[in-house]
Amino acid sequence: MLCEGAKFYDEAGSCPVCKMDLKQIEKASKEMETDEISEESIFNLMSKWHTEEGKEIQLEDLKGKTLVVVMIYTSCKAACPRLVADMRNIEAQIPDEKLKDLTFALVSIDPETDTPERLKAFAIENQMDDEQWTFLHGTESGVREFANVLSVKYKEISPIDFSHSNIISVFNAKGELKHQQEGLGVDNKETIETILQLIQ
Rank of each mutant, 00 (worst) to 15 (best):
T134W: 01
T51V: 06
V143S: 03
D110F: 01
A147N: 08
G138A: 06
I37Y: 01
A28D: 11
K65Q: 15
E4N: 08
V69I: 13
E145W: 11
T194C: 10
L67V: 05
I167E: 11
V170K: 08
L62S: 07
R118G: 00
T115M: 07
S151Y: 11
S108M: 04
D96V: 07
K63Q: 14
P16K: 15
G185W: 12
D110I: 02
P111F: 09
D110G: 01
S165Y: 12
F43C: 03
Q24E: 15
S158T: 14
I195V: 14
L184R: 06
Q132P: 00
M46E: 11
V68W: 06
I199M: 07
T103R: 14
H179G: 03
T191G: 00
D61Y: 02
I37M: 11
F135I: 04
K189D: 05
G183R: 13
D187V: 11
V84Y: 02
I72A: 05
D130L: 02
I195Q: 09
K7S: 08
D101N: 15
Q180Y: 05
A173C: 02
G175S: 08
L22S: 04
S169Y: 13
K174N: 15
D114W: 01
T103A: 06
E4T: 14
L67G: 06
K30S: 11
S163I: 14
C76I: 04
E33L: 12
G13T: 07
E11K: 15
I57P: 15
P111Y: 10
T34V: 02
I160H: 10
D86Y: 03
A147D: 12
S151R: 13
V107N: 04
A147R: 02
A121K: 12
S41W: 05
S158D: 13
C15Q: 05
E39G: 00
M87E: 03
I57N: 12
N89H: 08
I167G: 05
N44Q: 13
T34D: 13
F104Y: 11
F43V: 02
A28K: 04
T139H: 08
E97A: 12
G13K: 02
P116W: 04
E36V: 15
Q58A: 10
D21C: 00
L62Y: 09
G5Q: 08
A105T: 13
Q127H: 10
F104A: 09
W133P: 00
I72V: 14
V143L: 05
F104D: 07
E52K: 03
S108R: 03
L106S: 14
C80W: 04
F8W: 12
Q93F: 04
I160W: 02
A28W: 10
C76D: 14
E190K: 05
D187W: 10
T134G: 00
L198D: 15
M128N: 02
Q181W: 01
E36R: 15
